[in-house]
Design a protein around this nucleic acid. Structure first.
Lengths: 231, 231
DNA sequence: TTCTAAAGTGAACAGTGTTCACTAATTAAA
DNA sequence: TTTAATTAGTGAACACTGTTCACTTTAGAA
């Protein structure tokens, strides 16, 4: 811990944070529009009227800088989903608005969302997954499933963690396809059923919720009780 | 069409195709292990004992070369899923093996799978989506849904195209998370329910199939019949 | 054999992330 | 206030990248 916890920062430190903030701000601006491909150190330096090597007095590498952008984005993403959660009264509404918000934020900042998941998945990433924002986001989904179980809407016999992982994968996939395939919801051979992003997201979430509901017979799937044949 | 459809190719053309194949082979080798990041024109040239500029007599750009790798991968992916489809007797088994195969191939060649979906989604991509392998893959999912409806397993009132898109998104998301997050199926706070990739895929597919089944009441979701509030 | 078209090459261009010796400025100590 | 020690900032360079282009060599056809 170099600085004394931000209370009574020295003028030098305040100046340093100002420059650091300017770098991050310019980086955010460029990254939002052109992604990591358009974000070069030299361009960044030009935008804030510094030399390229000056950047390295504030960030160890370009990757460090981008990681900070990604982490900040994930923080904003969680904030907005959290806000959607606490302003929703019923469980059904909460599920719908939370996931719709998740998708909206992802589509609003496609480069951020893609980059946040494009890490090479190193061992260290796995180790402190719980501590990272991504792990917290997963925790929110788990909580949502547990709320559904408490409310008697979801199957109580289901492992909420496995269900949350499945749910998260499904939402992540939708975000990816909406970003990568333009007009994905309208992508149809004929012209019936032209949906907006929100409408298709609702449809998608509707199906996912249905799959977790408690209105089925004893055929509800439980993980890990089947043998697997080769394909 | 430069060459006369491969029948009676001239020696020059055969030689050319041989070199072209060697380039693609080396590219495939490098790309499989290190992805596009590790694939440089100079390294490729060194591996096949040519000069870097020679590559450009066979491929217009690096992107063209990589696109060919991606297209070939998607072809193999579809072949294997197709094989899984025709060797499965019952509908339930077909669904399970097809999707399990899809996930397996994606995880086997993570760089290929990620790159295949990492295109920037230009307007041209959208235009000839139907003609590309990716569009054919989507067609297979549609067909699968329609088979389920014909078999009386899936809700017949459901639009198979919308359902297929939802299904595809969910499977794509799982593939992404399995690739990006090591030990995703075992990612748990406690140690119960340690699943393999296949086992978790089966669990995931089980939920998705459940959501499309016809064992529900009249509350089955139909897309596009709801108003959307802001979040 | 001569001519033409293709194959293949080395050098260069413009760009990238990054490092390092160096100077300028600011802060702390005498 | 003068001096010493950090720190901020710089320009040049290194090792890369994809790509182009004038050039030579090779091969097939007339």
């Amino acid at each position: 811990m170099p600085q004394p916890l931000e209370l009574e920062a020295s003028p030098a430190e305040r100046r340093r944070q100002k420059v650091r903030g300017a770098i991050l701000e310019a980086a955010e601006r460029v990254f939002s529009v052109e992604g990591e491909a358009g974000l070069s150190i030299r361009r960044l330096a030009e935008e804030i009227d510094y030399s390229p090597s000056a950047i390295y007095k504030y960030f160890g590498s370009k990757e460090e800088l981008v990681d900070e952008l990604k982490e900040a984005f994930f923080g904003r993403l969680m904030e907005r989903v959290d806000h959607a959660a606490i302003t929703s009264l019923s469980f059904e509404e909460r599920v719908r608005t939370c996931f719709r918000t998740y998708i909206r934020v992802a589509v609003e900042r496609p480069h951020h969302y893609l980059a946040a998941f494009a890490s090479q998945g190193s061992a260290t990433d796995c180790a402190n997954f719980q501590n990272m924002k991504k792990g917290q986001a997963f925790g929110m989904v788990v909580s949502l499933v547990q709320q559904g179980q408490s409310a008697g809407v979801f199957d109580a016999k289901m492992d909420p963690y496995q269900a949350a992982k499945s749910l998260w994968a499904s939402m992540h996939g939708l975000a990816q396809l909406l970003i990568h395939i333009p007009h994905f919801p309208e992508m149809m051979p004929n012209d019936r059923g032209v949906l907006s992003n929100d409408a298709f997201t609702d449809f998608h979430v509707g199906l996912l919720v249905r799959s977790l509901c408690d209105t089925h017979g004893p055929t509800a799937p439980t993980p890990g009780n089947k043998e697997h044949k080769d394909v």
